[in-house]
Every structure is written in C-alpha cells, then in structure tokens.
Nucleic acid binder design. Structure first.
Length: 238
DNA sequence: AATGTCATCAACCGCCTGTCG
DNA sequence: GCGACAGGCGGTTGATGACAT
C-alpha cells in the first residue's frame, strides 16, 4: 500500500497536544500504534522520543545544578556512555539531556586540554599529580578512544576496563573530572533544589484540557474516533 | 548594526536487544 | 532455533539563540 509521507523536524504545539492526549489514553507503549491512531504523521520512534525528552510531565527543565553535574561526572566515570543508566539516577533528566551536557562539557574540556598542552613545556605533567580513582591504575593515555581504536574528539579518554559482564567501563581520575567544573556554592545544598515540573505541555493545557469532554475530544481528534469506528471499538473490549 | 563564532538542545539515524509467533 | 518486529540506546547533525568582535 502507499506509504503516507512522514513528517520530520520540529514538533508543532498541536502535535504535542495530540501526542500527549493519546499517551494519556493508551500509555507510553506501543509507539507505532500510538503514532497510527493519533493521526500524527510521525514514526513511532519519533513520538516516543518527543514524549520521553520533552512532553513527559515529570521532566525537570533548565540548567543542570552543580550537584547534578557532579553526579553525572561521577556516574560517567563509573559507567561510561551509558546515558540511560545515568539518567535513571537523575530524576527528571533524560538521557538525551545528559548526553548533550556531557558532549558540550567535554568538548570544552578537550579544547582546554589542547591549549594547556600547547602552552606547557612538559605536557606529561598534565595529569601526573592527579589522585586516581583507581590508585593502581597504569599510566593513562587520555587520548580519546573509539570502538575501532580510532580516537574520538569528544571522548576525553580514560582507562578502558573490562568488568564482569563484559561491559567496557572507562575510569577517570576524579581530580581530572572535577577540575574542570566550578565547585558548587556551599549554600546550594540538595535541600535547596526545587524540582521544576515544567513540561511545556502543561502550559498548553491550563484547564486540564487533556481530560476534555467527549464532544470536545471528538472535535479535536477526529482521526482517533474514525479509527475506533473502523476497529469496532475493540480497543476497550479487553 | 552587522557579522562571525560558539554553545545548547531537539531531533534523526542506525544499530542492538528483547519478545513473540 | 529462527525470523520479524518494536522499542531502546548511543552517536550525530542541524537549527537557533547568545555572545563576541
């Protein structure tokens, strides 16, 4: 059958509303199904990404706090680029957000390192005084490593260490990690951090319009209701 | 004010993994 | 056990806004 052309690029407000409505209706699973019944000309993947990274009500938005920054760096030193795993430890933050943060931060760091090396007569002294997380670590080549043994600019390197389950884990000196980050303001403890539940979706729905009347729903989401008609309403049968 | 550069973030892509028939 | 499919993950790109010159 003829494949309907999928939309790409930035999401419109109307699309967000539509997606949120159907996720509330059916839950955040079966993304291909959701994409279909919602009438959004988006792939299931695209819908999932939009929901997870932007529309989810539990998302915290805004700048990373110093505490979050430290946690990210600490967890990255343990787990490497396991962004989703790291994200679990930072409620309200997405893997994408953390990944972006890391990339930005590490690029800056790599640039600083290059400058330092260029201006230092003895480049080997750069990390030699760092107290290593693993005190018995061999001398470390901090040039970034990619899977095919090429060097990745954004990865600042670290020891590649095999762990039990076969995962590779990079280990960084904590001094190395912290030194590039401003220490947090002492007064800014975790207790002061107010989670900001500010998914922009809720701005669009000031009066709980996600839970509108049947008539309103029918007007707003005709695709869904026509779809249901075609399916003999079997969605709710089970 | 105009232009260039950099930082940030949303979104896409391709690969991997888990599940189901 | 195998193939198909859906979902998840990490890497990467492109648009945009902020800042510097």
């Amino acid at each position: 059958m003829a494949q309907e052309e999928m939309r790409k690029g930035p999401w419109a407000e109307q699309e967000d509303l539509q997606l949120a409505f159907y996720v509330n209706l059916f839950g955040d699973r079966r993304w291909d199904f959701l994409a279909k019944v919602s009438g959004l000309r988006r792939t299931g993947k695209s819908c999932r990404l939009r929901w997870v990274n932007y529309l989810h009500p539990g998302l915290k938005r805004g700048k990373m706090t110093p505490q979050e920054e430290r946690l990210i760096l600490e967890l990255h030193s343990k787990w490497g680029n396991r962004w989703s795993k790291i994200a679990i430890k930072l409620p309200g933050r997405t893997d994408n957000e953390i990944k972006n943060y890391w990339r930005t931060h590490m690029r800056k760091k790599a640039q600083d390192e290059r400058k330092n090396k260029a201006s230092t007569i003895s480049p080997s002294s750069s990390f030699s005084n760092s107290s290593s997380f693993y005190s018995n670590s061999p001398d470390v080549d901090f040039t970034p490593i990619m899977e095919n043994n090429e060097r990745n600019f954004y990865d600042t390197g670290g020891v590649e260490k095999k762990i039990n389950d076969g995962d590779k884990m990079k280990v960084y000196s904590m001094d190395e990690i912290w030194k590039d980050i401003e220490l947090p303001d002492e007064s800014e403890t975790m207790n002061n951090i107010k989670p900001i539940m500010s998914s922009p979706l809720w701005n669009y729905c000031p009066n709980n319009t996600l839970w509108m009347s049947d008539e309103e729903e029918t007007k707003m989401f005709p695709q869904f209701y026509s779809y249901l008609d075609n399916q003999d309403n079997t969605f709710f049968a089970g």
